[in-house]
Amino acid sequence: MKINLRQIEVFRAIMLSGSISGASRLLLVSQPAVSRLISYTEQRLGFLLFQRIKGRLYPTPEAQRLFEEVSSLYESVQRVNDVAENLVENRAGQLRVACSPNIGQSLMPRAIAIFCQRYPDIRIALHTLIPGALLKGLLTHQVELGIAYMPVAHPSLEIRPLYRNRIVAALPAGHALTARDEITTRDLIDEPLVGYNSDIPFGQLVQQLFGNDAGQPLPRVEVTQAHVACAMVQAGIGVALVDEITMQGPIWSNIVTKPIAPEINAPIDIFSIQFQPLSRLAVEFISVLESLRS
């Protein structure tokens, strides 16, 4: 390398100030130090950068051409500093998050509203995905955070518990079971049930609630998402087992919820890649999510 960053800094200081003395003041070093370094730089380059005419320094045409590149370099450095400052202040950037569909209608709108109020310049990309697609999104770095009920652990994921998320029975208003304080799965055996596809984790959890195959009710309607089940109950089609987080979403009129006994949960966790530091934005978003627990 013919010229290093310190030599570039001294050269630029002379070009800006027009003299050795001015450069020494800009750089807070002695004039002899500036003179020695610029002389050494000229030796390394193999051409003169300045000529002294009647006691003043004048840049050569070669110096003028070199200064154009140096100016571009310093503009790039300034952009780096600007980006760093924006990162410190969380003034720019994008946060990529994935969640399960029911959370996308309940928890996430509240969390994102708070986050956007705090950081109005940040862009959020929210993907509502089923657990398998959410896991793939995390592992391929398409998203930084995942928020979901995803009971199958993966060795590459770090898991932060967020909500216990109790399972409740969603009943049409006026249903006889709404008079109960708690409901058991036995109470629902003869009820028209809105059930779930057994391929999804929540559907598998609901099946576990009813026990063995002999105790499994035949759903009147089968869906893949809890908020769709709520819409079915709202329409008077039947009853459904849903989670508390889903019930915090849209105002479900004409629906009454009752806790299931014994208590069972579909815990909501925050997922990220293990041993990979989170961005400042992701850490801030997790803080917002955790603040909504209270």
Results as ranks from 00 to 15, higher is better:
78 Q>R: 15
123 R>C: 08
127 H>K: 13
112 I>D: 02
121 D>A: 09
82 D>V: 06
91 R>N: 05
66 L>A: 05
106 S>M: 08
127 H>T: 03
82 D>S: 14
133 A>N: 14
132 G>D: 10
119 Y>N: 02
113 A>Q: 13
66 L>G: 02
80 V>C: 12
133 A>S: 08
64 Q>H: 14
64 Q>N: 11
101 P>L: 03
132 G>Q: 12
132 G>L: 11
105 Q>G: 06
64 Q>T: 03
116 C>H: 14
107 L>A: 07
117 Q>G: 07
105 Q>N: 09
116 C>D: 01
70 V>Y: 10
113 A>E: 10
106 S>R: 03
70 V>I: 14
129 L>E: 13
121 D>H: 13
65 R>E: 12
111 A>K: 05
116 C>P: 00
132 G>A: 15
128 T>S: 10
95 L>C: 05
68 E>W: 12
110 R>C: 02
116 C>M: 09
102 N>C: 13
69 E>A: 11
105 Q>T: 12
107 L>P: 08
110 R>L: 09
129 L>Q: 08
131 P>E: 02
102 N>G: 01
117 Q>S: 11
63 A>V: 04
70 V>P: 08
131 P>L: 05
127 H>M: 06
73 L>H: 10
86 N>Q: 15
137 G>T: 07
86 N>H: 12
118 R>E: 05
134 L>H: 01
65 R>D: 06
82 D>R: 11
124 I>L: 15
91 R>Y: 00
79 R>T: 13
128 T>D: 01
114 I>M: 02
123 R>M: 14
90 N>A: 07
103 I>R: 04
77 V>S: 10
63 A>R: 08
77 V>G: 06
113 A>V: 03
135 L>M: 10
114 I>V: 10
137 G>S: 15
64 Q>P: 03
134 L>V: 06
82 D>P: 03
91 R>K: 11
79 R>G: 08
74 Y>K: 05
112 I>P: 02
104 G>F: 00
90 N>M: 10
84 A>M: 13
134 L>E: 10
69 E>N: 08
123 R>I: 12
76 S>P: 00
136 K>A: 11
115 F>T: 05
130 I>F: 10
96 R>A: 13
99 C>L: 04
103 I>S: 06
74 Y>E: 14
102 N>R: 04
124 I>G: 06
134 L>K: 07
122 I>W: 03
122 I>L: 02
73 L>D: 08
78 Q>V: 06
89 E>I: 02
73 L>Y: 12
77 V>N: 10
111 A>C: 03
68 E>A: 13
72 S>H: 12
70 V>R: 09
118 R>K: 15
108 M>W: 02
111 A>L: 05
108 M>F: 03
103 I>A: 14
68 E>T: 12
63 A>L: 04
